[in-house]
Amino acid sequence: MPAKRLTASFFGSLIPFFRGSSFSAEHVFRTTVYLRKTGGDDLVLISSHRWRSPFTINVYIEALNEEIRPGEIFVIDQKQLVGERVEIDLSQANLYLQKIPPMDGASGLEKDEVIYLSKFFSLLATAWNAFYRSVALERICEIRNETLSKKSISKIVGAGNGFTPSGDDFVSGLLASLSFARSSKARWKNSEFAIDDELLKRTTWASSQYIKLANYGIYDELTLENAIAIYRGDMKRAEELLLELARRGHDSGLYIWLGLITGLSILKFGEPITLNYICNRC
């Protein structure tokens, strides 16, 4: 039986680096398939979500889990992703480059605006029943006044429930903000700390890859758009994008945003404004 042919709308800029490599469908969900490189840890996503990333192939399809089976092997060649039952044509797709626009002159959200967003987020998060009772949030609050270090971050990695544990989502957002500030030539004070394999072993493969990529400055478009809006001080956009990101996954988006705003407010104001607000209300 010939493989079903799908057409990609976008593929990320990391995909060409994997040409000739084979991947196995490690996790298969309705809208996203996690491909793991054979004999390695690299991550490639096939996703029908409209948001893009450097490691994602975007397709228009209702249910990916009806087409792709767990364990199915894929090879990325010159113009397509070839699987046993599915082939995805990349030749018609646009290349997604994670472009960070020039940030010269951007002053970022003011302190009172971050406080307002914190209130907005805090109230919104009350609608997620588990958020204020989560182990991950408890641990995040415990380390909020510590200097960011491998030791402090290790207390959060792997904490919480879900395919990507909530603590990891927070760390991904935090690292995305720090790497965003680096790559956007921020005038704000830089901050770095080491993420090594030992730390990544504390969590699941897929989650560890998100953390690793975020640390390299590679993350999805929605996270990027959020960072840009906060960094530019575009309050209206920041509010809209917070709502969009908050809806991701079970509560993944909430934690990613919390990590993102925490990183950016530490860099600009020297304190985790939103975390302080949230943790005082736990």
Binding site: L123, L124, T126, A127, W128, L243, A246, R247
Partner: peptide, 10 residues
């Protein structure tokens, strides 16, 4: 109808 749930879900 809870306005928080409308915002949460869209």
């Amino acid at each position: 109808v809870d306005i928080r749930l409308v915002l949460k879900t869209g």
